[in-house]
Amino acid sequence: MITEALLPLLLKSEAGRIVNQSSALGSIQFQLSNELVQQIAPPAYATSKAALNMLTTYWAQKNNNTHLKVNSVHQA
């Protein structure tokens, strides 16, 4: 995974950032509260974005005591 490969360099940087491009379709709550989304969102896409959100959480928690910032973004 590219994040693991670059992590040593990111941790050396004073402004290390990991930014993942996600989607609202990866939100379980959004999926459950919006019937239209359930009709148009391919299950594989929504599942992959939910997994990406979990990876973002993993990296954020793993590096909680460092200056590295980890985020996931969605562009509307």
Rank of each mutant, 00 (worst) to 15 (best):
residue 32 L to Q: 12
residue 76 A to N: 05
residue 67 H to G: 07
residue 42 P to I: 09
residue 46 A to D: 04
residue 70 V to P: 01
residue 13 S to P: 09
residue 53 N to G: 12
residue 58 Y to R: 03
residue 45 Y to V: 09
residue 12 K to S: 12
residue 36 L to W: 13
residue 67 H to V: 12
residue 41 A to H: 05
residue 73 V to H: 04
residue 18 I to F: 00
residue 24 A to W: 08
residue 35 E to F: 08
residue 53 N to A: 14
residue 76 A to T: 14
residue 32 L to I: 01
residue 44 A to V: 15
residue 20 N to P: 01
residue 51 A to P: 12
residue 73 V to L: 15
residue 70 V to I: 02
residue 44 A to P: 12
residue 23 S to G: 05
residue 48 S to G: 10
residue 47 T to F: 09
residue 51 A to Q: 10
residue 52 L to S: 09
residue 59 W to L: 11
residue 4 E to H: 10
residue 18 I to D: 00
residue 16 G to T: 08
residue 43 P to S: 11
residue 50 A to M: 02
residue 65 N to Q: 15
residue 12 K to Q: 11
residue 63 N to V: 10
residue 30 F to A: 13
residue 40 I to T: 07
residue 42 P to A: 12
residue 27 S to T: 09
residue 61 Q to F: 02
residue 37 V to F: 02
residue 33 S to W: 01
residue 20 N to Y: 00
residue 47 T to Y: 01
residue 65 N to Y: 03
residue 37 V to G: 08
residue 10 L to Q: 02
residue 66 T to Y: 09
residue 19 V to R: 03
residue 50 A to C: 06
residue 38 Q to P: 05
residue 17 R to A: 08
residue 4 E to S: 10
residue 11 L to H: 04
residue 63 N to L: 11
residue 7 L to D: 09
residue 11 L to C: 13
residue 4 E to V: 01
residue 20 N to D: 08
residue 39 Q to E: 12
residue 4 E to R: 15
residue 1 M to K: 05
residue 3 T to W: 02
residue 59 W to N: 01
residue 38 Q to Y: 05
residue 39 Q to R: 14
residue 63 N to W: 02
residue 39 Q to P: 11
residue 46 A to Y: 00
residue 17 R to G: 00
residue 57 T to I: 11
residue 48 S to W: 10
residue 10 L to S: 00
residue 59 W to I: 04
residue 59 W to F: 10
residue 1 M to A: 14
residue 35 E to N: 07
residue 16 G to F: 05
residue 58 Y to H: 14
residue 46 A to W: 01
residue 37 V to H: 07
residue 33 S to Y: 08
residue 54 M to A: 05
residue 29 Q to P: 06
residue 60 A to N: 00
residue 7 L to N: 10
residue 41 A to G: 04
residue 38 Q to H: 11
residue 64 N to T: 06
residue 24 A to Y: 13
residue 53 N to H: 12
residue 54 M to F: 13
residue 21 Q to L: 13
residue 52 L to M: 14
residue 6 L to A: 13
residue 19 V to Y: 03
residue 20 N to R: 07
residue 23 S to F: 06
residue 55 L to C: 12
residue 48 S to Q: 05
residue 74 H to P: 03
residue 13 S to C: 07
residue 3 T to K: 04
residue 38 Q to A: 04
residue 32 L to Y: 05
residue 47 T to G: 03
residue 56 T to E: 00
residue 29 Q to Y: 10
residue 65 N to I: 06
residue 8 P to E: 11
residue 27 S to N: 11
residue 9 L to Q: 14
residue 73 V to G: 02
residue 54 M to Q: 12
residue 67 H to M: 05
residue 24 A to E: 11
residue 12 K to Y: 03
residue 16 G to E: 02
residue 38 Q to N: 14
residue 4 E to D: 13
residue 8 P to W: 04
residue 35 E to A: 15
residue 19 V to H: 05
residue 50 A to T: 14
residue 64 N to V: 04
residue 20 N to M: 06
residue 23 S to T: 05
residue 45 Y to T: 06
residue 21 Q to S: 07
residue 2 I to D: 06
residue 3 T to R: 07
residue 24 A to C: 09
residue 73 V to T: 12
residue 75 Q to W: 10
residue 64 N to P: 00
residue 73 V to K: 09
residue 62 K to R: 15
residue 65 N to T: 07
residue 23 S to R: 04
residue 7 L to Y: 02
residue 31 Q to P: 10
residue 7 L to S: 03
residue 22 S to V: 14
